[in-house]
Amino acid sequence: MSTVSSASHTVTIDLGERSYPIVIGTELLGNPATYAALPKGAAALIVTNTTVAPLYADQLRAALAAKYAQVHTVVLPDGEEHKNWQTLNLIFDALLGHGCDRKTVLFALGGGVIGDMTGFAAASYMRGVPFVQVPTTLLAQVDSSVGGKTAINHPLGKNMIGAFYQPQLVVCDLATLDTLEPRQLSAGLGEIIKYGPIADMDFMDWLQTHMDALLARDRTALAHAVRRSCEIKAWVVGQDERESGLRAILNFGHTFGHAIEAGMGYGNWLHGEGVGAGMVMAAELSRRLGLVDAAFAERLRTLVQRAGLPLCGPLLDAADNAGRYLELMRVDKKSEAGEIRFVLIDGPGQATVRAAPDALVREVIDACCAA
């Protein structure tokens, strides 16, 4: 009988009866033992996309065949621009077309878009069926697959339609990162970098030392980065599952970043690229508010640059660029009564959520956007 690799590491999301493990290692995705503890059911549905399916769908299907009598697959178009109602309905079409019941387990095989949509489908189908995250991108492994946020985009705002719905299991097979495009690897590093300034400066020190190894896909360095990121996120989510307070700090850089994604049109900038430029802007806003010094802001800027991420936000409106950013940021989920709430660094390793004067935000946007 096969067992999960002894080299794997497990991080637990502690949410009482909704608790679940994040398993990090190699030789996990295609190993039937990885899924042995999942609830029994007659069928499983693998949700993946046109990029990931040829690489890993057969491995996962073979592993699940040992547990489920029927293993179905639905292959979605790839890209953030497809994270919408039309694509979500393809999952429901597959579930209904195969006569899937409420014990059917959904498996999200892919990056953050697949994970978010599969989770939302699982939360909605028959008012809730179990699902498993099998993230194949660095960004999904360290962020979007963990914590139960599921959603689709609306043309006016990113992730505005969704639900909190926790998976049964998260499987982070580091071997899947070998096939990741360099741009996608850098995007994932953006989500990793954020954990240092908001919660763990020792981790930020480690990232500065090991950035070259991460870019070279050194397996040991990646294992540590994924594990520490998941540990920090697990600690935050365990205290604030539904983002009523503390969990909002995980959105450092995201208020600016989501505006960039929406303003450019979904798919033109990767999420992690928007977060990278967004962190630079948020750090500069923190500096101008007197929360951090110039040395800290420059340190973060350098780390973002070394990760291969953009430092400057794009021009979203030639006539009033800052005004367009502000318009888009008012749709952010953290906004209250039209007041934009930013995740800012309140001293190294600490984050706060607060408003800032529009005039100051405009200055930051003007200073941090490409001419």
Rank of each mutant, 00 (worst) to 15 (best):
K233A: 08
E231Y: 08
C230E: 02
L250I: 12
I260K: 01
K233G: 04
L250E: 08
E243Q: 13
W235R: 14
G257E: 04
D240W: 04
H254W: 13
K233N: 08
N251F: 11
T255I: 12
N251G: 11
F256G: 02
F252I: 10
A259D: 04
G257A: 14
E231A: 07
N251L: 11
I232M: 09
I249E: 02
E261Y: 07
W235H: 13
A262P: 01
G257H: 03
C230N: 11
R247F: 05
A234S: 14
Q239H: 15
V237F: 06
C230M: 02
I249L: 15
V237M: 05
E243M: 13
A259P: 01
E261M: 09
E231C: 07
I232K: 01
F252T: 04
C230H: 02
R242M: 12
F256Q: 00
C230R: 00
C230G: 02
E231T: 10
E241M: 06
I232Q: 01
S244R: 14
G257T: 06
I232E: 02
A262M: 07
E241F: 04
S244I: 13
E261Q: 11
E261I: 03
I249A: 05
F256D: 00
R247G: 03
C230K: 00
H254K: 12
G238H: 05
W235I: 02
I232Y: 01
D240V: 03
L246Q: 13
N251K: 13
T255Q: 07
G253Y: 03
I249P: 00
G263F: 00
A259R: 02
N251W: 08
A259N: 03
D240Y: 05
N251T: 12
A262L: 03
N251V: 10
E231K: 05
F252K: 04
I232G: 03
S244K: 15
A248L: 11
N251M: 12
A248V: 03
G238I: 06
E241C: 05
I249M: 15
H258K: 09
H258P: 10
W235L: 12
I249W: 02
G238V: 07
R242V: 12
D240L: 03
I249Q: 04
R242T: 15
E241P: 06
A234F: 08
H258D: 12
G245T: 09
E261H: 09
R247Y: 06
L246I: 13
G245S: 15
E231N: 08
A262S: 15
A259W: 01
I249F: 09
G245L: 09
E261W: 05
V237W: 03
L246R: 15
A248G: 06
S244E: 14
A262Y: 01
N251Q: 12
F252D: 01
A262E: 04
V237R: 01
G238A: 14
F256E: 00
C230W: 01
D240A: 05
H254P: 11
R247K: 13
A259C: 10
T255K: 05
K233H: 11
T255N: 08
N251D: 10
G253N: 07
N251P: 02
G238Q: 07
D240R: 03
A259I: 06
G257S: 10
K233C: 08
E231S: 07
E241T: 06
D240S: 07
G263V: 00
L250V: 14
E231M: 11
L246P: 06
Q239G: 10
S244T: 15
